[in-house]
Design a protein around this nucleic acid. Structure first.
Lengths: 249, 249
DNA sequence: ATCACCGTTGCACATTATGCAACACAGGAA
DNA sequence: TTCCTGTGTTGCATAATGTGCAACGGTGAT
C-alpha cells in the first residue's frame, strides 16, 4: 500500500465535505504543510483539485469528468432505469434503488426519488452497509461461497438501530433465507421507521449482478405493507434480468 | 510534485478510457507490475478503482460519489440552467454550454444538447482549449492581468483547424477585442464547420465567473447567422449574472 | 497432470518523500 | 506609507518509503 497515495486520496475524500486551506489539509493529514502542499499541487496539475482566488482548495473537474464515465461503465443502469421508474410508480411513489457490490459495500447506482414528503436519505455513489440494508443482503447472498466468507469476515457489524443484525451467525441465517425466498428485507435495521425489501438482478448465467430495493417509511406503510410489495419487486427484477440477458446476446 | 501520486492519477485517467489488467497498467506506466499493483490496491481500498471477477480494473464508485459533489460545488450551474435551456430554445435548438476556468482550461459545467442531427461533441467535465473556443477566450479575457499573462504563457497554441489562433500575439488581440465588444467567437477554429459565440457571466463585482456559448454547425447557420445570435446570448448571460447577484445577497 | 499466464509476497536498497529553515507575498491595521 | 501577521513556496539534507527482483501461488486450458 502506498502511503503518499493514501494521503492524497484522503485529501480528495475530505474535500468532498467542503473546501479547505493548505493548513487545514496539513492538520487533517497530520503532516507538515510542505508535504500537504506537494500532494495538493500534484492533484491540481491533473485537475483532481482546484484552487480559488483565496487559495482555498476544492474538488476539481476531473472528478466529474471521470465520475460520469465510471457511472456509465455500469451498463446495467440503462437497462434498469425504465423498470425502476415503473416500479416506483406501481408502488405508490416509493423510493426505488439499484445497487451493486463493490469492495465491501453495496453502492447505489441509480435511484428514483420518493414522491412522499417523508423519505430516506441516499445518494448515487454512496455505500450502503451490507449487513443492514436489503440490497446489501441480496448482494452478499449472491456472492460465490469463498468470496462471501471473505466479505462476511470483513464486515463491521456496527448497529444502526436496535434492530440491526449484530453478528456473523445471525447474518448467515438471513443470507440463507434470502437465497431461499429470493428476496431480502431491512426491517428498520438501517434506519428507524423505514422498511425496505430488495431482490436480485441476475445475468444470463444466474449470477447476481445488482439489487433493486423499495424503501418505505412506517408512516406510509407498515412492515407488512412493504412485504406486500415483494411480488411487484420480483416482477421488476425479473424484467431487468431478462432485458439484460437480451442485451448481452 | 509527487511521483507516486502522479502515477496513480495517470491510472485513473487511463481507466477512464476503459478497463485494464494489472500488466496493461504496468506497461502503460512503464513500471514493474509490483509497483502498479500496490498503487491499484491503494486506489481500490478507498473505492477509486474496482476489480471485476476476471481481475480487470475499472473506475470505482468513489469517482461518481465525489464527482457529483464536485459538480454541485459549482453553484452557478443551478442559477444558469433555466437560462441555458431558454437560450437553446430561442436559438432554434442549438447546443448551449456553460463553462468555467480551471487550471489552464475552460471546463464544461453544463450543456443543453442540440436538437439537430449534426452537432459538436462535448461533455460536462471535459476541458476545452482556451485559445480555440469562444468560452476559452471569454474566460481568459476576464482574468486579472497578472494571471492572464501567466495563463497565456502556458498555452500550447496547437492547431485544431487551419483557422486556429497560432500565437500569443494574435491571441492577445482577440482577447482585447473580446473585452471591448463583450463577447467572443470561435469561427471554425476548434472544429471545422462549427461556429460558436460566447459571452461572460459576471458576479456582482464584475468579475467573470463563467462563460456561456452557443454552437452551430455551418449546415444549420453560416458564421454571420451565428453572430446574429449574440444579442440573445448577451441577454441570457446578463440574466444569469443578475440572478447570481440576487442569490449572493 | 502439466504448462503458461498472471496476480501476490517478502526482502534489500535506491530513490523519492519529508520536514526544516528561510523566504516571498498579500492583506489589514496603524 | 510602513509594519506585522498569516499563509503559501523554495531549497536542502536525510529519513523513510517506494521500487524492482526473485520466488511463489492460483487458475484455466490442454
Amino acid at each position: 500500500m502506498s502511503q503518499s497515495l493514501s494521503r492524497a486520496l484522503q485529501i480528495l475524500i475530505e474535500l468532498g465535505e467542503g473546501e479547505r486551506s493548505l493548513d487545514e489539509v496539513a492538520a487533517s493529514l497530520q503532516v507538515h504543510k510542505t508535504t500537504a502542499m506537494r500532494l495538493l499541487h500534484t492533484l491540481e496539475a491533473d485537475r483532481f483539485v482546484r484552487r480559488d482566488d483565496r487559495q482555498r482548495y476544492h474538488l476539481g473537474s476531473r472528478l466529474f469528468a471521470l465520475g460520469t464515465i465510471a457511472l456509465a461503465q455500469h451498463a446495467i443502469r440503462d437497462v434498469a432505469q425504465p423498470h425502476l421508474t415503473r416500479l416506483a410508480a406501481e408502488t405508490g411513489g416509493q423510493a426505488v434503488h439499484l445497487a451493486a457490490y463493490e469492495n465491501g459495500a453495496a453502492i447505489y447506482l441509480a435511484k428514483v426519488e420518493s414522491t412522499h414528503a417523508v423519505r430516506m436519505y441516499s445518494r448515487v455513489g454512496l455505500p450502503a452497509a451490507l449487513h443492514a440494508t436489503a440490497v446489501g443482503k441480496v448482494l452478499v447472498a449472491g456472492l460465490p461461497r469463498g468470496e462471501q466468507d471473505a466479505v462476511i469476515a470483513g464486515i463491521d457489524f456496527r448497529p444502526f438501530t436496535s434492530r440491526t443484525i449484530a453478528d456473523a451467525a445471525a447474518y448467515r441465517e438471513v443470507l440463507a433465507r434470502t437465497r431461499e425466498q429470493g428476496w431480502a428485507e431491512d426491517a428498520a435495521e438501517h434506519e428507524d421507521f423505514i422498511n425496505c425489501v430488495g431482490a436480485p438482478v441476475r445475468d444470463e448465467a444466474g449470477r447476481v449482478i445488482a439489487a433493486v430495493s423499495v424503501s418505505v417509511p412506517d408512516v406510509i406503510l407498515p412492515r407488512e405493507g412493504v412485504r406486500a410489495l415483494v411480488p411487484q419487486l420480483l416482477a421488476a427484477t425479473g424484467a431487468i434480468s431478462a432485458d439484460w440477458a437480451g442485451r448481452s446476446s
